[in-house]
Amino acid sequence: MTRLPDVSIPRLLLVGLTLTVVAAVVGYGSVSSAAFGAYNSGWDGTSALRSTAAGTGAQVTVAQETDAYDRAAPRRTVAFVVAPTSTYDSRAILRLREFVRRGGVLVVAADDNESVNYLLQGLGARARLDGRPLRDARVNFRTPAMPVVSTGPNQSLVSGVDGVTLNYGTAVRPRGATVVLNTSEYAYLDTNRNGTIDEGERLAARPVATVERIGAGRVVAVSDASVFINAMLDRPGNRQFVRELVDGRSRVLVDSSHAARLPPVRAALWAVRDSPLVQFGLGAAVVGLLGVVSRRSGALDALRRRWDGDPGVERSAVDREQLVAYLERQHPEWERERIERVVSAMRDDE
């Protein structure tokens, strides 16, 4: 019968505590609390955007840098730029524009109208975001600040969507782009932001999403990034809106290059995956660590064999001090601390 290792209760508790701490650190480092974060599972994150897209059967990738567009297969990919927190520079915009011109679909959803309008201009799109708060006094979800919008006339891009709910969004000025989603005729732009309709603020149907062709691809401009947050995807029509945008594409690219940075563990995994140099360094470190452990184990085994073969020692009667004295004779160059560690290891394995 195989003899089970004799493991002390304190050691088991230490191992359990260590595993718990490691699991907590990894778990905390794998998620994000940043608004619109791709790995934020809170109400204001977009983790549900990833899972909804994956539910269509598409392969979902979260991109930390815009060079991911260079590796994408444009005709099979739809990319989401949701609430960028910084402005894309000319080099990044060129990458996105080339992705679209080669057949990609790019969905740009606003939170900061200025940076999004700059991106749309750089892409060669005509649509622009208005920036003024959009309200609908009659067709809304609980408050005029959350209009419920419907598909535009003859719009096949999202033909399966019955309605989409906005959350403190704005309007899109199409300027020749095709309207995808429209408010009711009871909507207005709250120019002075006082929450009520005043003189000069007229009721009318307002576009909130457009599509236009650029090269072989398309750019979809959505006036409210909140459509894609976790809390809003539970509203009727919002999740289906995502499915319709992904429909027909086998790959989804969630662009986090100009949004909240990836959590540290996710960023580390991304670095390892995409860098052969990092992979080599990590592999070398693991091999080196295994070598050190193996050498230490081999040296300890050799010491045990010498100890067992010494005719001057009665193992049955040995105590800790005798073992210390034996090691001091065998290795006078060792420090007392090292001898104590070796004695502990040898006695634990008896």
Rank of each mutant, 00 (worst) to 15 (best):
L12Y: 04
L13K: 03
V15K: 02
L17V: 10
L19A: 13
V21W: 08
V21I: 14
G29A: 15
S33Y: 12
G37M: 12
Y39M: 05
D44L: 07
S47C: 05
G57Y: 00
V62R: 11
A63K: 04
A63E: 07
E65S: 14
D67L: 14
A68Q: 05
D70N: 08
D70M: 03
R71P: 02
S86V: 15
R91T: 12
I93P: 09
R102Y: 10
R102K: 13
L106G: 04
V107F: 05
N113T: 09
Q121K: 05
G124K: 02
G131W: 02
P133R: 15
A137M: 14
V139E: 08
F141L: 15
S156N: 15
L157R: 11
S159C: 11
S159Q: 15
T165N: 03
L166H: 03
N167V: 07
G169D: 06
T170R: 03
A171P: 10
R173K: 10
T178A: 11
V179M: 08
N194D: 13
D198W: 02
D198L: 10
E199N: 11
T210A: 06
I214F: 00
A216Y: 01
A221N: 00
A221P: 00
S223G: 15
A225T: 05
V227D: 00
F228K: 04
G237I: 02
Q240S: 13
F241W: 06
D247C: 06
S250F: 00
S257T: 07
A259C: 09
R261W: 02
V265F: 13
R266I: 15
A267D: 12
L269S: 10
S275P: 09
Q279Y: 04
Q279K: 15
F280P: 05
V287R: 13
L289G: 13
L289R: 12
S294E: 14
S294Q: 12
R295N: 04
R296D: 12
R296N: 03
R296G: 08
L300T: 06
D301A: 13
A302I: 09
L303K: 14
R305M: 15
G309I: 00
G309Y: 01
D319H: 04
A325P: 04
R329S: 01
W334S: 06
W334N: 00
E335Y: 08
